[in-house]
């Protein structure tokens, strides 16, 4: 188990290296002068020179790169031009919002999606199956940011049940946090819920045909134990691998959902930075999001091993 974990960790390193390189490289694809684009057309020559100096643009590219990695190893992501704040600090400040949004959505998507998938598989070919799969298909066909607007209109404007947006820290007011989270997280969860439902259905149909499910029934186990314990434990193994990928999609979706629901998270920070060409924040935001993705997938691999004893013991 330890060796397996170490192996996964080592294989994540080259990916992280390329990720950091790509995050830095985003400034290289800006056509023309980055400084001009950031400062705007009204900037004086002196202002531009100062900006270039701050961004390190006066140095040759390889020195820029070495400088980026040098700072990175010390945990320094650079300075935001507009916020007059360290990029790291700006992100860390907003991270709890984004993480609670993403993981609440992941939880909703996983629980509802697998439930839908199990229901569909157990009732395969019947009306319940078609209804569940139709829900799943519609789930990942709706534009989530638009759905968010519609929900705000419905639940906040028309019905007045929930706030239109804003964030309440969990530690301050758990109920307020839940009220603020339910709409954005639910909206964000919808597309991935559909994918989880499909995956679960396919995996369950496969598993329900297996001999060990027949064994469980021959042992006199009631239906809900056969499905919920013997079949689901096995069907979840491939579904859990998708959880890592889903987490990435949700992180990306959080960017726009945060904007729709006025949540002060990393996504809104990045969108603001993109609109105002604050490149250090864009670089740091990209790097951090991708790193979270890689780490989550590492965690998923370990969870995978916990679910499947065959991997834990180094077979297969």
């Amino acid at each position: 188990m330890l060796r397996y974990a170490a192996g996964r960790l080592v294989s994540a390193l080259p990916v992280l290296l390329i990720v950091s390189l790509l995050s830095f490289g985003i400034v290289w694809i800006v056509p023309g002068d980055v400084a001009v684009e950031m400062a705007g057309p009204t900037a004086t020559a002196e202002e531009l020179a100062r900006l270039r100096e701050r961004l390190g643009l006066t140095k040759p590219w390889h020195e820029q790169l070495i400088g980026w990695y040098g700072a990175l190893l010390q945990g320094d992501l650079g300075e935001s031009i507009l916020l007059r704040q360290g990029v790291g600090a700006a992100i860390v400040e907003r991270l709890p919002v984004t993480l609670s949004l993403t993981f609440t959505a992941l939880l909703i998507a996983f629980v509802c999606g697998t439930a839908l998938g199990v229901l569909a598989a157990v009732r395969a070919g019947k009306a319940a199956d078609r209804a569940a799969m139709g829900t799943a298909l519609i789930g990942f066909s709706l534009p989530d940011f638009w759905l968010g607007l519609v929900f705000v209109y419905l639940f906040a404007v028309v019905l007045g049940w929930l706030p239109t947006g804003g964030y309440v820290p969990f530690t301050q007011d758990p109920l307020g946090w839940a009220q603020a989270m339910i709409l954005p997280a639910g909206t964000l969860a919808l597309s991935q819920m559909g994918l989880f439902a499909r995956m679960t259905r396919a995996a369950m149909l496969e598993v329900l045909r297996q001999d060990y499910v027949r064994t469980a029934r021959a042992k006199g186990m009631p239906g809900w134990i056969v499905v919920g314990k013997h079949a689901l434990r096995n069907a979840l193994i491939p579904v859990v691998t998708v959880a890592g990928i889903a987490c990435g999609v949700l992180l990306g979706g959080a960017v726009v959902i945060e904007s729709v629901f006025s949540l002060p998270g990393v996504g809104r920070l990045i969108v603001g930075a993109i609109q105002r060409r604050d490149y250090p924040v864009i670089q740091g935001g990209l790097l951090l999001t991708a790193t979270i993705f890689v780490l989550v997938n590492l965690a998923v691999d370990l969870l995978y091993a916990a679910l499947d004893p065959r991997i834990r013991h180094g077979r297969r």
Binding site: Y212, R214, T215, H230, R233, N234, I237, L307
Partner: peptide, 16 residues
Amino acid sequence: VAMIFQEPMSSLNPVL
């Protein structure tokens, strides 16, 4: 009434 099957390889649940 109990039953045993032909395939011992696949008749036991791999995750239990």
